[in-house]
């Protein structure tokens, strides 16, 4: 991607008369600028409004627009204090702090587990060929067609009741519904097809010589995987980790269903979604809560944007 943008720009140094070029440039550029700036403003203002509203005093956002805050600046941090630790109005005593912790407690393992399992599988599928390994890889890749919804109910039933044929229990009741374990497991399972696919693309491109040299030296595949593959695949691992982190942190459906309605484990998205429903004009709390929920992914996104974009391109352009 090192090609400078100007090279592909239609208005560029070509065998055109310089007058024509100048006219076209002066016409196209301001129009382009205006359009881009307009779109950018449109895209940013809603989030900005939320941000401002979250600092306005209780009741202010319900009686006047957030844009009036510039004329009468009166800002406070108390909404954050209230929504994090108090806000009994929303049906819990402790505010959203416990749910924020839940989100973190769910997201970190639910990122690391599929990452490790997928990296191992991707290595075997790429470098330890066996009969049917290519077909197997294609099958796993194709599993991306299965929408979460299609697997949801039976998996929930398995977690809560086990699996039976007639009266014979194939898998006993796991009793993990309403615990972190069910959320971690569900997120891991649903992440694997994309994870294996992305990591396989990368790991398969590692030079054969490096791996064979390791094996010739008498190292096992396990050793090669740990000492050669993992360090070299770091960019791909980072890209997927960011993806998965954002996906799990932002997820609503898995949190809603696999937490089994237990407030002890529900992630922040579930809580916020309920707050919107049961909310009665208390915009100052809702906006503060929403801002807390989006600041984490935004921080991850802005600090690791490069990896994020790379992952995006690997998944949807290259194949």
């Amino acid at each position: 991607m090192s090609t400078p943008a100007e090279v592909v720009s239609p208005i560029n140094t070509g065998p055109t008369g310089s007058a024509v070029k100048a006219v076209r440039r002066s016409f196209a550029s301001p129009l382009a600028s205006v359009l881009v700036i307009l779109l950018t403003v449109l895209w940013t203002v809603p989030t900005f409004g939320l941000f401002i509203a979250s600092f306005r005093p209780s009741g202010a956002s319900a009686t006047s627009g957030w844009w009036t805050a510039f004329a009468h600046p009166q800002l406070t941090l108390s909404n954050y204090n209230t929504v994090l630790f108090h806000s009994a109005n929303f049906g819990t005593s402790g505010g959203i702090m416990p749910f924020l912790v839940n989100s973190l407690a769910i997201t970190i393992p639910a990122t690391l587990f599929p990452l490790s399992i997928a990296a191992m599988a991707a290595y075997v599928l790429a470098w330890v060929k066996f009969r049917g390994s290519d077909a197997l890889f294609f099958f796993i890749f194709a599993l991306q067609v299965v929408p979460l919804q299609l697997a949801l109910v039976p998996l929930l039933q398995l977690f809560s009741g086990g699996a039976h044929i007639g009266t014979i229990a194939l898998i006993p009741a796991l009793n993990v519904s309403g615990t972190y374990v069910s959320l971690w497991t569900a997120h891991t399972m649903f992440a694997l097809p994309l994870a294996i696919y992305l990591l396989h693309n990368f790991i398969a491109q590692i030079p054969r010589d490096l791996i064979e040299a390791g094996l010739v030296d008498g190292a096992s595949h396990f050793r090669v995987f740990r000492t050669i593959i993992l360090p070299l695949a770091t960019p791909a691992l980072a890209a997927f980790a960011i993806f998965q982190f954002l996906w799990v942190w932002n997820d609503l459906l898995v949190g809603l269903t696999f937490a089994g309605g237990s407030q002890a484990v529900e992630p922040l998205t579930v809580r916020l979604s309920q707050m919107v429903g049961s909310f009665g004009g208390r915009w100052e709390l809702l906006t503060a809560g929403a801002f807390i929920a989006i600041i984490v992914p935004l921080a991850v996104f802005f600090s690791l944007q490069r990896y994020f974009v790379r992952g995006l391109l690997a998944g949807s352009v290259k194949g």
Binding site: W43, T44, P46, T47, G49, L50, A53, L246, W249, N250, D251, L252, T269, L272, S273, V276, W283, L286, T287, G289, A290, A293, I294, P297, L298, V300, F301, F308
Partner: peptide, 16 residues
């Protein structure tokens, strides 16, 4: 940027 924001967060932003 909105890509990094959850649909729940986005919904609250736009509900406002």
């Amino acid at each position: 940027m909105p890509m990094a924001i959850s649909f729940v967060g986005a919904s609250i932003i736009w509900k406002f």
